[in-house]
């Protein structure tokens, strides 16, 4: 099953992008771009979620999608465990409690199953959101800046955890952070002025660190390219 998007979109009369072709192979595709370039719109179109644009073209996506947004979208009156099985509830299936518990343990939240979201830290809440996404057991994961609201330490932990748990998955990560894109991306794409451009990603398997050879040069090139689009 392929995943991707192929088409054009207009915001009112103004074109947002035209003839955009985005294929999502297995691995992490990081989508960078200035604010308003349409990164989140592309992600939402692939997810089949409503957008403010008119789209003409094709979207290929599997029936099941793991989704994470910048907000954790946890239901405040449900436990962590209840939030993890929310997708199953919404589909009308019987919750698989054992699997949900195992996933919460896998994201480092064993013992906190009964906590309400407000009794968890920001990092813990985003872990619950990751467990909820993993519960979908989907071949495609769409991540819309899920790490951007976290502090540096939590962000790195969450990034590594997500890379580990989403191995073998097609992942689209929308981010405004070139560091994050370089660190996590098997591919790095730039969406600006309605066009998609593939930028150089670091060789070798992510996650990379600042010590990875060539990181600084890649980062400078990426940032220069981003600054040029503003």
């Amino acid at each position: 099953m392929d995943a991707g998007l192929n088409g054009s979109a207009w915001y009112g009369e103004a074109p947002l992008f035209a003839g955009l072709q985005l294929a999502l192979p297995v691995g992490w595709t990081c989508l960078l771009g200035p604010s308003g370039a349409g990164k989140s719109t592309v992600l939402r179109l692939i997810a089949g979620l409503p957008t403010a644009v008119r789209f003409e073209g094709q979207v290929q996506a599997p029936a099941r999608i793991a989704y994470m947004a910048q907000e954790d979208l946890l239901q405040p009156r449900m436990s962590a465990l209840g939030n993890v099985v929310l997708g199953q509830r919404l589909r009308g299936g019987a919750p698989d409690w054992d699997h949900a518990r195992a996933l919460l343990a896998a994201v480092g939240l064993a013992g906190l199953e009964a906590r309400r979201p407000r009794e968890l830290s920001g990092g813990q809440r985003q872990r619950v959101a990751l467990a909820r996404a993993l519960m979908e057991d989907a071949p495609l994961a769409l991540l819309d800046e899920p790490f951007s609201a976290l502090d540096a330490a939590n962000r790195q932990k969450m990034q590594d955890l997500a890379r580990e748990r989403l191995a073998g998955c097609r992942v689209l990560l929308v981010t405004h952070d070139p560091f994050e894109a370089l660190r996590l991306g098997d591919r790095v794409l730039l969406l600006a002025d309605g066009r998609l451009e593939e930028l150089a990603a670091l060789p070798g398997p992510p996650p990379h660190g600042a010590q990875t050879p060539g990181f600084g040069a890649h980062y400078d090139a990426l940032l220069a390219r981003l600054v040029g689009t503003q």
Binding site: L49, Y67, Q75, L86, G87, R89, L90, R91, G92
Partner: peptide, 17 residues
């Protein structure tokens, strides 16, 4: 959006969200 992604019926969206 969580309901839309799950393809949830209006009834389930009502009950769970």
């Amino acid at each position: 959006d969580l309901g839309r992604l799950a393809g949830a019926s209006r009834w389930r969206v009502l009950v769970w969200l």
